[in-house]
Amino acid sequence: MNAYLALARASLARQFRYRGANLAGLITNFFFGVIRVSVMVALYNANPAAAPAGYDLAKAVTYLACAQAIIGWVALWGWWDLVRALKGGEVVADLQRPIDFFGLWAAQDFGRAIAQLFLRAIPIMLAFALVYPLVGPADIGQLLIFILSFALAWFLSFTWRFLFSILGFWVTDGTGFARLAIFSATFFTGFLMPLSLFPDALAGVLRWLPFAGMVATPLDVFSNALRGPEALVAVAVQAFWALALYALAQATFTAGVRRLTTQGG
């Protein structure tokens, strides 16, 4: 356990060193958020009655603000560490360490995520709160469910990134596939628009897929769009997919290592 903790801590410290890049990223995330919120406000202004019952503008705006804040936490876009390590052959060194490979990378990524929570997620939420009226978890119970869901979102996103990255065991340059995986999944995560505003049938399906758990679920819990039993079901779906993707990741990894050792790098 200590080894994982040390890895996470080192990776966290590394994030804190790049102050300039963090500040620049923060500004960019915030600016794009402003554009998206502006679109949302205009849509609601055009026809407030068209919104689903109970899903008011404040919830939608909170959802979009959180979406910008969660970028650094789930790192679904622009995380190439493992793809590069596989391409460059550095993973061979990792494979020789007496430590679980998934755990090694998960620990490092968790450290990165925690750093991003303080460097990006919280400052961005504060910035949005200054400019727009936001809502937050309605009560302690909701807050606890949110924290659980938020943590699961990281785990799901990491497992998913891990999965498409280790395709690099089979193809020489995994970058292209990784990019395809990322770009296609974005839509399904609910990052682009609140799932509640999609047609009900589509949203219904998306909520059962693993992707919603990476972004939409914690956001809907935070903004109280999913409450009580509904929220618990959504978190259960997240937990189910977390286990399923984890099992899949380990199995794929084992197959990949077998391929590496039998065929050479």
Partner: peptide, 15 residues
């Protein structure tokens, strides 16, 4: 020829 170099590497300090 002289160069102006930052004492800390870029990215680790704000402008």
């Amino acid at each position: 020829k002289t160069f102006r170099v930052a004492l800390k590497p870029e990215g680790r300090s704000l402008p």
